[in-house]
Design a protein around this nucleic acid. Sequence first.
DNA 1: GCGCATGATGTAAACGTTTACATCCCTGCA
DNA 2: TGCAGGGATGTAAACGTTTACATCATGCGC
Lengths: 360, 360
Amino acid sequence: MGLGVTVKDVAKAAGVSVASVSRALNGHKNMAEDTRARILGVAAGMRYMPNDAARSLITRRTHTIGTILPDLHGEFFSELIRGIDLAARARGLHLLVSSSHGDADEAAAALRSMQGRVDGLLIMSPHADAGLLHANLPDSLPAVLMNASGGQSRYPTLSIDNHGGALAMTRHLIACGHRRIAFIAGPAGNLDGDERLRGYHAGLAEAGLTHEAMVFAGEFTEESGHAAGHELIRRTPRPDAVFAANDMMAIGCLFALRERNLVIPTDIAIAGFDDIPIARYVTPPLTTVRVRIAELGRSALTRLVAEMEAPGSSSESPQLLPCEIVVRTSCGQYFGPYNRSKSSNRFPIAAPINMPGRET
Amino acid sequence: MGLGVTVKDVAKAAGVSVASVSRALNGHKNMAEDTRARILGVAAGMRYMPNDAARSLITRRTHTIGTILPDLHGEFFSELIRGIDLAARARGLHLLVSSSHGDADEAAAALRSMQGRVDGLLIMSPHADAGLLHANLPDSLPAVLMNASGGQSRYPTLSIDNHGGALAMTRHLIACGHRRIAFIAGPAGNLDGDERLRGYHAGLAEAGLTHEAMVFAGEFTEESGHAAGHELIRRTPRPDAVFAANDMMAIGCLFALRERNLVIPTDIAIAGFDDIPIARYVTPPLTTVRVRIAELGRSALTRLVAEMEAPGSSSESPQLLPCEIVVRTSCGQYFGPYNRSKSSNRFPIAAPINMPGRET
DNA sequence: GCGCATGATGTAAACGTTTACATCCCTGCA
DNA sequence: TGCAGGGATGTAAACGTTTACATCATGCGC
């Protein structure tokens, strides 16, 4: 039972018309309270569940929002979905996900296949340029872009404040006394990576250290960080700090330096970007830039809902989400004025054993 | 444009009836090939997209499957979704997710709200007992349970082979020469944790070490592992190995032991369960049991599709997914006959610095 | 007591598909 | 030439809702 019970069956059982049943269910005004109560009782008794397809057909609302995501792994993906899901559920919206899009064609297919199933779309895709979007989406479907090269598109855009985060970290490293700060970049053309690089350069420029800029190629992978690490210690004079465009490269670099028996942070400091969970557990714990991924998801959904209710409502695009410096021990001690996260160690991590050069 | 174009508009533009348009789109037989081509051309030209709600209404198929998940974090969640999504997309199915269900009421609400939106359900929830499922799901809706206490339910069930994995790890520890093996358990009543505990006991029993069993309470959290670590080293004689029911507890324990300046694995060995990404990056890298989460998702979806096509097709429930021992360095050297993962270190990790007691 | 506003309820159209059935036309065979 | 058969196409019903509009009863002011 439960399936196959229609509004008509309920109407018959309750001795009213289908319209009354519908009104009772949707909480319309202008109904006798006792009638409503009776209908609701009968409906519950029959375990009636409205057919959403029929409802959507007439109301033109699916109460579902779709997400188009690239081939993401790990914490980033789950936190993003988590933030979106929480915000969506709070509004009674369902979540249709389509992830793992490796190329533009797959992303386009996903876009098209969501037609008519969703009231709005949350899109994060390196391939989602204005052309692709226009070709595969009806103009009437609200959408919000995440971490896209905003501005050029007619869609609202939300991004991590990559530039601001990298700038803050560069300042922090300088404040810690480092001067020769190397940077391990992201893959060419990657938006996040490019912004972080810009922030690094801005930080150096501020301190009059432009001539010290030292950029190594990277691919956001542990391997590329490892390779960059081996390369950068051959430089003379050696850099006294490394800032990697993401945590995985910082960790790869960390291992490379340890292979050469360099002591971190005494011999050389390391900083990353993202604050992935692993960052807290390597030896020594990694100083990094935290990005609130769940918050990005939550904000994007909020923005999308606003867009759905009043298209073109807020056009102050792109919106930036702030980052936060998380100071651990991989960059040496620092007690200056920058924003430090109180919660950077939710749990007291043991001091790395046999690690010289650290004060208590 | 693109929205608002209906089959009727296409029919008019192509000079045929709506039935012909429908037939052309759905690849029916008994159609003149040229007519079909013409209709398809017109439809594409008008950027026609069929309305899924209307289609679902009449066909009673949504081509969507729903997932009900508990409040999961991190890698586990993303890998699971990833496996499901890949398998679903391959079959042209959409994915409706509902995660973060903290209690039974939320799970029940999620179950009900998916009515009529999905053709089948993938459920992982500690609250999803037979009663809850029966009360909130129509009998006609196919569903597959993941990691539930199988057998008692009329739904097909898939689970990680927790018992087998824990047994294999216990054997491995014994084969490494350890005798006094402590176990840090999961939260009381947790199915996975209980099965792992059973596997531990079975392993000890096999080796005639039942009297050495030593179980400490844990909550699957780093904190509880840390606490258990401090507790277990006060025992005399001290355990020579610790097997934690999951990696986070193993890591908490690892830090506790390092705080006491114990050398791992010389003084005491540590093993975990799950192979979370962090496991490879702690010092020393953690030996653990790998569970193929994405594979679990993929299998569950495959099973669900089978169930949708032929209800009650395969009742050999519950189905177990094998685990795999991943040998790193936290348990000492071992070259015996157990199944070792070749890929346990996708990338050469540097030897932990200043870590005595390890051979090359 | 009469008309009228108001509130409760019923009737039926509409949403955009799919598909059973009817119709038409063409081919092949007697 | 006539007729059966069958392939192509059209007609219209059905899916389960919501909602504009019609209807009906009730109470109120005069």
